[in-house]
């Protein structure tokens, strides 16, 4: 209905991820703050029981259509645009995941609606929604408001706890029917990642290297250190793109989510896309020459030093300790 808060569920390959519930928790807070209802929309095909799992919402719009079976951003954007035009929500919360990433661009373009990207938090201030957005890889943040409705918000993982949004309830499920036009983009198939030699999600110790380690040679030192500590080496995206490590070693949004006992981040800036993959590690040690690097806001210990000096020194020290 007009003026409500609408949350898009993050449905991928028949499953709802945590961020769906994080957004429902946030959406509930905003809906209460504005004195409106919380609605959800779920998009896909043969969705079965999934709409009923969105118990925190008052109403769930279910877009179940063979043309939406696969995550073709343009098709999803068309479908959502229809629902938004019909319902006229005040705000639409979209999960910032790789599945929804293109939608964040296409939907506001299609609706000519205001869009706020990289939202880490959203609050109701004087009856208006105000978002805190993370910019420049986490080095700046901005308070931002929209000038028109519907306001479309791309919300990063971690805005609220998923537990808060996992509410039993019996939302009214409304089947919405939409016509999807061929967008010239067709899904063919999934390609599963090649199994790596080690599964980094199963390691207790991870030595993680970023662009700041400068060269593939320094990755070798990290490998030796990992071996001494009984763990494995992993890395941030640029290290994978450079070919210094295989894709199976990538930590973050597009890679693996890891929770080891020890995570040493060497030469990693701590961009939100990396941090979402490692922030729940037990002990995080960051080595970065930039004292303003965002990695220090998730690390337990930090050293503003050259990682290419600290890694070999640490390797020596660990070897000496082990005798």
């Amino acid at each position: 209905m007009a003026g409500n808060v609408l949350v898009m569920a993050d449905q991928w390959r028949g499953e709802l991820s945590d961020i769906t519930y994080e957004l429902l928790a946030l959406g509930r807070e905003l809906a209460d703050g504005l004195g409106v209802s919380l609605e959800a929309v779920i998009v896909g095909h043969q969705l079965g029981e999934l709409p009923n799992k969105l118990g925190a919402a008052d109403v769930v719009h279910c877009l179940d259509n063979p043309a939406l079976a696969d995550p073709v951003p343009d098709a999803v954007s068309q479908a959502l645009a229809e629902v938004i035009k019909q319902q006229e929500p005040a705000a639409v919360l979209i999960p910032w995941t790789n599945v929804a990433a293109d939608l964040l661009g296409l939907l506001p373009a299609q609706l000519d609606a205001p869009f706020l990207n990289f939202c880490q938090d959203v609050r109701v201030v004087d009856g208006q929604l105000e978002a805190r957005c993370v910019l420049y890889g986490g080095k700046m943040e901005a308070k931002v408001v929209g000038r028109a409705r519907p306001l479309i918000l791309g919300v990063l993982p971690g805005a609220r706890s998923a537990e808060q949004g996992r509410v039993d309830g019996a939302p009214t499920v409304v089947a919405a029917s939409v016509a999807i036009q061929d967008s010239g983009v067709h899904f063919k198939s999934y390609v599963e990642p090649e199994a790596g030699d080690v599964d980094i999600t199963q390691q207790e110790v991870l030595i993680s290297v970023g662009r700041g380690v400068q060269s593939g040679d320094n990755v070798k030192i990290a490998e030796e250190l990992a071996a001494e500590l009984g763990g494995a080496v992993c890395g941030s995206r640029p290290v994978i793109d450079q070919g210094w490590l295989s894709l199976s070693r990538q930590v973050g949004k597009s890679g693996a989510i890891v929770k080891p006992k020890l995570y040493i981040a060497a030469g990693i800036s701590g961009a939100p896309e990396h941090v979402e993959g490692m922030k729940d590690s037990d002990t995080i040690i960051a080595i970065n020459t930039d004292p303003g690097a965002p990695i220090y806001s998730v690390a337990h210990f930090g050293a503003v030093e050259d990682a290419t000096d600290v890694l070999p020194a640490l390797l020596d020290a660990v070897r000496a300790k082990k005798g």
């Binding site: 609606a113 205001p114 869009f115 706020l116 105000e130 993370v134 910019l135 986490g138 080095k139 700046m140 943040e141 901005a142 308070k143 931002v144 408001v145 929209g146 000038r147 028109a148 960051a286 080595i287 004292p291 303003g292 690097a293 965002p294 990695i295 220090y296 806001s297 998730v298 690390a299 337990h300 210990f301 930090g302 050293a303 503003v304 030093e305 050259d306 000096d309 600290v310 070999p312 020194a313 640490l314 020596d316 020290a317």
Partner: peptide
């Protein structure tokens, strides 16, 4: 423009981490 930036800040980053001082060897120790 469809949005307004009200303010921008440099986030406080070092809040949580205990920072270790010294040269590489001291830090390693």
């Amino acid at each position: 423009a469809l949005i307004d930036i009200i303010e921008m800040n440099v986030p406080e980053v070092a809040g949580r981490a205990e920072m270790l001082e010294g040269d590489a060897d001291e830090i390693a120790a």
